[in-house]
Structures are given as structure tokens and as C-alpha cells.
Amino acid sequence: MTARVDHLVTSGTFSLDGGTWEVDNNVWIVGDESEAVVIDAAHDADAIAAALAGRALRAIVCTHAHDDHIDAAPALAEATGAPVLLHPDDLPLWRLTHPDRAPDGELSDGQTITVAGVELTVLHTPGHAPGAVCLHAPALGTVFTGDTLFSGGPGATGRSFSHFPTIVESIRTRLLTLPPETVVRTGHGDSTTVGEEAPHLQEWIDRGH
């Protein structure tokens, strides 16, 4: 059976540094009719489980540990038996949301996660968060970028644990080097392509946001 990408939008809040904001999150499900992985279990474990439609969940992959991307991960793991995977550099952020429940496994740069015959390669892309990762699926012509790269530029770097020069370097060296037709599936908002974003790198640097 052929692997596909399913898309779910869930709504909730993002809290950090004493502020709270309403947000809509993209939840990505990669798999076929029998198995899948979830990228970013945001806000609503029941809705994500329903979208799985009985498929075996192999992993819950966290692109980073801001609360809006991981708040439903423990409940989804409990419901499905799937392990929660996170880059260890984001454990301090994870503990702000889930102090009593650690992730089940670690993500590391270059690691591959295979589901439905498709390989997802982990790219460590710090900047928005220390342990931020993207997942490149060449066979699907796509990269899942979490909050590292959006349609229109880099993810936010104005809060704790973030750093603008680092995110720009991550995008420049790890994402803009991918084939230009690669579809960029983001943590919030619309998808884009590497080719659409690459010409704007210097503008982002000059803007310094």
C-alpha cells in the first residue's frame, strides 16, 4: 500500500514566558492503511486517534517541545501504545509541560524512522528551540518543519530557549539545501516549498526577526 500524508488542524493555546496565546496547529500523519506515525500531537488526542482510524501508531514524533506541539502526546501514547520521541536538547522545555512523564525515546540528527515503507530522516535544526528537528521524506517529496520554517520565513525566536542566528543557520544549511520542489509542511499555517522560500534568506537576515 502507498504511503500518504494526512493533515489535521487542532486548536488550543501556547504558553511560555508568562504569556498565553490561542493557536491552531498542524498535525501530520504519515502512513498507509495499516500503520502511521504522528508528527506533533497537538491539543486533541481524541481527534488525532480518530484520524488514525484504527491504524497502528508506530511513533509520536515531536518536532520540538513547546506545549502546543506536545500537550496531547502523553494521552495519545497511552491510548495507542506508541512511543513519544523527542530530541534530548528539548527536555527542559518538555518538563515545563509534562514534569512527571518523560518522552519514551530520543531523536538524533541523521536518525531514520520508517513507516509504510517510507523513510523520515531527522534533521536537527535548532533555533526556534534547542532540540527542534525537521523530518525529511524524500520519497514523498516533503519535509515537515515544525516551527523552524514557515511560508514567509523562520519561526519565532523572541522567547526563551530560542536564538535567531541559530535558526537562520539551520534553515540555510539543512533545509534550503533540499531540492527546490520539496514541499514544506509546517507546524502552523500554509505549506510552501523550499524553492519558494530560498530566495528570501537575506531578507530574513536583514529583518533579523
Rank of each mutant, 00 (worst) to 15 (best):
P92D: 11
A59G: 12
G110H: 06
S170F: 09
A102C: 02
W94D: 07
I113S: 03
A77L: 04
D68R: 02
G146R: 01
R174F: 05
E78Q: 14
A116V: 10
E33C: 01
A50S: 14
R101E: 04
T10H: 03
E197R: 05
A72C: 14
E203Q: 13
P126W: 06
H124R: 11
R58L: 15
A45P: 13
R185G: 00
T193W: 07
H136T: 00
R4L: 07
A45C: 12
G131D: 04
L93F: 04
G208M: 05
H43A: 11
P103Q: 07
G127M: 10
T177K: 11
A139F: 03
V194T: 13
V118F: 00
A75R: 14
L175Q: 02
P88Q: 11
Q202E: 15
E196M: 03
G18N: 12
A59F: 11
D109W: 00
G127E: 06
D46H: 08
D6W: 10
C62T: 09
A36N: 03
P199N: 04
T10Q: 08
P180K: 11
L96Q: 14
I48M: 01
G195V: 09
L107A: 07
T148I: 15
A45S: 14
T148N: 10
P165R: 11
V5T: 09
T121H: 02
W28A: 03
T80G: 04
A198R: 14
P103E: 06
E35W: 04
V37C: 07
L16F: 08
P154D: 09
D147G: 03
G189Y: 08
G19H: 14
A79W: 08
T157Q: 08
R174D: 12
P74Q: 12
N26C: 09
A139V: 06
G81V: 09
H163N: 15
T177H: 07
Q111S: 03
A36Q: 02
G127T: 08
G155E: 06
M1F: 08
P138R: 12
G127Y: 01
T121E: 15
G189T: 06
H124V: 08
L175R: 06
T177Y: 06
A50H: 08
A72D: 14
V27S: 01
G19E: 14
V168Q: 12
V133N: 05
H128K: 09
L93T: 11
A47H: 01
F150M: 14
P92R: 05
E203T: 14
W94F: 11
D90Q: 13
L176G: 09
G153A: 06
T121F: 00
I48E: 01
L57Y: 04
P126V: 10
T20D: 00
A198V: 08
L91W: 10
H7E: 15
H43T: 13
T97S: 15
G208L: 07
V115T: 12
D100G: 13
T63G: 05
S162K: 03
V194Y: 02
I29Y: 03
A198Y: 00
I167V: 15
L96T: 13
H87L: 07
T125R: 01
A77I: 04
P83I: 12
A36I: 06
L201M: 12
H64Q: 15
I48Y: 01
D24V: 05
T80N: 02
P83T: 12
Q111P: 01
G155M: 07
D206Q: 15
E106A: 15
G31H: 05
A49Y: 04
D147M: 01
L178R: 03
P92V: 07
V27I: 06
G155S: 11
L86S: 05
H66Y: 09
I205Y: 08
F14H: 14
